[in-house]
């Protein structure tokens, strides 16, 4: 599949945004929010919002008729893309609500109480944000995971992969923000380290799986002649067309290997080193964690690029 820039940007950024929202929401729902980190929280929520929105805007850039994007909300009964749209829009509601609630608390720093925000409401909104974020990312994953013509995407590790990258990149951003606010927690760092390792294992497993599973259908099947071995004599047109550009994108194997190593280094190895180093030199933690987050984001983007570039669409059997 053609790795379209807009789609890679979209899924990586909005994934990170939703991941960030998810962690923020989780902490809020579980632990409540102390006055002191509301600002940090707000910064995180805003960053998440920016990432999500930038991602979604970028995805509009992928559309031929962005002005009609609203129509995409209508077919949630059948379409994962529609569901994703609905979930994305819906997730803005708890996010906005939380922003309002926390904003209100910020405006009442001494607890005058004229703006009273019940903790239960906060927790509920936070829980909704978590659910919405996870659901949106899951929908995104399902857009791909539901496509039968692309066996590499119709793969059990795709959904956890999308969720995992959202949580990893979002989590690292969260940690970086916390570190900047001086509230880095070693426990969280260990958790992120474990996540990075898990994602590395997951991706290695995924790559191994797609490398070793032959396409279930052959060119013969595509031609309705399952017993014949067919090779291309002439393509219909000598130059490229939409289908070949979009779906018959072939990435050289050796480039694939190098890029996979790069992705692993960036989304797992370097963040892990940063996390460890941050634990050793807490003073450097903000910078190191920011680097970890950035590296993971770029690594995720490379991973996403490969996710497209190495997925073979069955229509390529015809070409």
């Amino acid at each position: 599949m053609n790795p379209a820039f807009s789609v890679i940007v979209f899924t990586t950024l909005s994934g990170a945004g939703y991941g960030l929202w998810c962690w923020l929401g989780l902490r809020l729902a579980l632990g409540g929010v102390a006055h002191a980190d509301a600002a940090a929280w707000l910064a995180g929520a805003a960053l998440g919002g920016v990432l999500v929105t930038a991602g979604l805007l970028s995805s509009l850039g992928h559309l031929g008729k962005p002005g009609r994007a609203w129509r995409a909300l209508s077919q949630w009964r059948t379409s994962w893309l529609s569901r994703e749209g609905v979930a994305a829009v819906a997730t803005f509601l708890p996010a906005a609500l939380l922003l309002m609630l926390l904003g209100a608390r910020q405006l009442d720093p001494v607890g005058l109480g004229f703006i009273h925000v019940p903790a239960a409401l906060l927790s509920a909104a936070a829980a909704l944000l978590v659910a919405g974020s996870l659901a949106t990312v899951a929908c995104t994953a399902m857009i791909y995971a539901s496509l039968k013509p692309i066996p590499a995407w119709r793969q059990p590790l795709v959904l956890p992969g999308y969720l995992g990258f959202a949580l990893l990149t979002g989590g690292l951003l969260d940690q970086a923000l916390l570190a900047i606010a001086g509230r880095a927690s070693p426990a969280a760092a260990w958790a992120m380290l474990a996540m990075a390792a898990a994602m590395a294992v997951l991706k290695l497993g995924y790559w191994h799986a797609i490398d070793t599973t032959p396409l279930a259908v052959t060119r013969g099947d595509a031609l309705g002649l399952p017993t014949r071995q067919a090779s291309v004599f002439e393509r219909p047109h000598t130059e490229a067309n939409y289908v070949t550009r979009e779906m018959v994108y072939v990435l050289a194997r050796k480039h694939g290997r190098a890029l996979r190593a790069l992705a692993l280094a960036m989304f797992a190895a370097l963040p892990a080193v940063c996390l460890l180093a941050g634990g050793i030199w807490p003073a450097a933690a903000p910078g190191l964690l920011a680097l970890a987050a950035l590296s993971a984001l770029l690594g995720a983007a490379v991973e996403r690029w490969l996710f497209f570039a190495q997925a073979r669409h069955l229509v390529s059997l015809y070409y």
């Binding site: 992928h62 559309l63 031929g64 995409a72 939409y242 015809y318």
Partner: peptide
Amino acid sequence: CIGCKLCSWACPYG
């Protein structure tokens, strides 16, 4: 149509 191209991805027959 918004031109999201998803249908083309979903068609195995190109």
